[in-house]
Nucleic acid binder design. Structure first.
Lengths: 342, 342
DNA sequence: AAGCAAATTGACAACGTTGTCACGCCCATG
DNA sequence: CATGGGCGTGACAACGTTGTCAATTTGCTT
């Protein structure tokens, strides 16, 4: 004789056991006011005893919200996106929301269709949009039309009332460049980030500002386009390093490209940091695993995502759009940079 | 005058527009039989015109399934888990299932509570359990009790009827070890994986088997415990390399530890691969970003997850447990290994 | 002790699907 | 010409919550 599979308790079971109406149980579960403390305790006790968990589906259907939040991203480096995921997850967990990750495929129209498909199919309560998706005016408009609350993580210049969380990319890049200048470097190469990312332009602007501030002429030949990938960083660095009057330092717009630059240096037999300084941006895991360890800008990726999720949840609760936020960064000096060689 | 927010179409709207009962629309949407082709087309046309998307919640509630699949993991390296995620995501997308990622916190009882909390709160249709969670008999039992279909990805020896997808860890480790032996190495260090992972034991067994097959004595002093992290690999390698008669090659049970070993070698001034060969396992992103690039075992992480998800969906459709599967691996020889130095 | 407002509680109708079952209709069978 | 069995369809009751609103109880004021 086998034990029957224990039917899942429902709200009615709890109500009956506690001798109250289901509505009262509902009130307790949702922390609504106007329930006597004694009643609340009694219900809570039964809930625990029966191991009762409200049905998400029923709740969504009746309450017109799904407790589901989407997190969409395009194609970032694994180390970066995992930090984002965990930041958002952590905040979701606090409020018993669930997080639905979605890697967006395609660009332009196709990307839009992909996102809207997700939004239409799963009735998300809100969305976290990471760069560069957050930089598509079309997408922003489409989301507005669906009147779906969302928060953007990462900087961008799309004028929009939606709150966002970002950091001072330009400032950070400027500071890093000045650090290199401070080490005596004058020929400083720069690898630009993916052109789709607004941050790429900001970082480049910071680099330029630092040069200008120190009376160093900006030269196109010290700047190369990259795409935030290891390979693109390696290729760009090879070009930078094989020209006459090659730079004595390379500042890449993210760590993956900086790691690529390191690889390029190794392959060209250039010692880092003795003959070449290399700096990155983001301070992801890779910065600590390459040799020499990367000097980089620490970006609070986890906190960025946590904060964005926090804003979103606030937004869902209050209905009003909260203030956007800017988080801090800091330079992390490791072994890949040094005083310029003679 | 503002345009009213376009109310989301529901099944009834479609039914009315098509001049049929809602049940017929439901049948069309779910590919049920017994609908005239003409009717089907008419309904489909209206669905498209109205941009109708069934409500997930209503569907779950009425149909007693959520179209939600959970993916739980503990604390793997970012590069690894992202591959897993994308493999599972890809398969889910094909069948319009959604994937809920969940990083499990804690160990033992706490881990169990965490997982069961997820299962109880969200009415998942199925679960994908990665190692080492899949190796907890307690957890397996608890999931059975909830009669939740699940698939294990990664090897383990817990006897259980649940299907799983794995690869031949022992065989792969043996092959890699033999490759090193073939390069002339006799003193081969080995860094064991996290003791919680069954695969760690398998890989160690493969290493031992290879030594035995070639008449090389197994020595404890060439083996160190690691924890699948970069740091642990670095520490273990330092110990291995600073003893008398240090190994001429180190085989680490995953790429992160191998990268750590590389770092240790750099810090000790030991050239790789001239004075020391280093091999890893997994072939994650890190293997291609360190210098020199790592020789490693390519593990089909993406496919493992894709296949596991596939089995799970099959299971949900047919109700029967499908055959478990074993996927292939292959050695990837890069620049971190070479013929032993004299 | 009555009167009234506020606090507490409950009955019942949504919410948007799917499952069950019954109803015609048409065709093959005897 | 009755009979039976698919097929195509629809009516209606679930599914397990929350929202609305009315009913009841409590506590305070006079």
């Amino acid at each position: 004789m086998t034990k029957a599979p224990p039917r899942r308790a429902k709200i009615q079971d709890v109500a009956e056991a506690a001798g109250v109406a289901i509505k009262t149980v509902s009130r307790v579960l949702n922390n609504e006011p106007n329930v006597r403390e004694e009643t609340r305790q009694r219900v809570l006790a039964i809930v625990k005893k029966l191991n009762y968990h409200p049905s998400l589906s029923a709740r969504s259907l009746a309450g017109r919200r799904s407790f589901l939040i989407g997190l969409i991203y395009e194609n970032p480096s694994a180390n970066y996106i995992v930090d984002v995921q965990h930041g958002a997850m952590a905040r979701c967990r606090e409020d018993r929301f669930q997080l639905l990750m979605h890697q967006v495929t395609g660009r332009g129209e196709e990307m839009e269709r992909d996102v809207l498909g997700l939004v239409d199919q799963t009735h998300l309560d809100g969305l976290i949009v990471t760069a560069p998706l957050s930089e598509s005016p079309d997408l922003m408009r489409a989301l507005d039309r669906r009147s779906l609350p969302f928060v953007r993580v990462a900087p961008n210049d799309v004028p929009h009332q939606t709150p966002f969380v970002d950091m001072d990319d330009a400032g950070a890049a400027r500071e890093m460049t000045e650090y290199l200048v401070g080490l005596g470097h004058r020929r400083i190469g720069f690898i630009v980030g993916h052109p789709d990312h607004f941050a790429s332009g900001q970082r480049l602007a910071g680099y330029k500002a630092a040069l200008a501030a120190h009376g160093i002429e900006y030269q196109d030949r010290y700047v190369r386009q990259g795409y935030f990938t290891f390979e693109s960083g390696m290729d760009a660095a090879k070009e930078l390093l094989t020209q006459a009057d090659a730079p004595t330092a390379i500042f890449a717009s993210n760590d993956d490209m900086a790691a690529g630059a390191l690889m390029a240096a190794h392959e060209l037999g250039i010692n880092v940091p003795e003959r070449l300084s290399v700096a990155g941006f983001d301070d992801t895991y890779i910065a600590k695993t390459v040799w020499p360890r990367l000097t980089t800008v620490h970006q609070p990726t986890y906190d960025l995502a946590y904060t964005a999720t926090n804003l979103l949840l606030q937004m869902l609760q209050t209905g009003a759009a909260p203030q956007s936020m800017r988080l801090g960064y800091r330079l992390v000096c490791r072994a890949s940079t040094a005083v310029v060689h003679k």
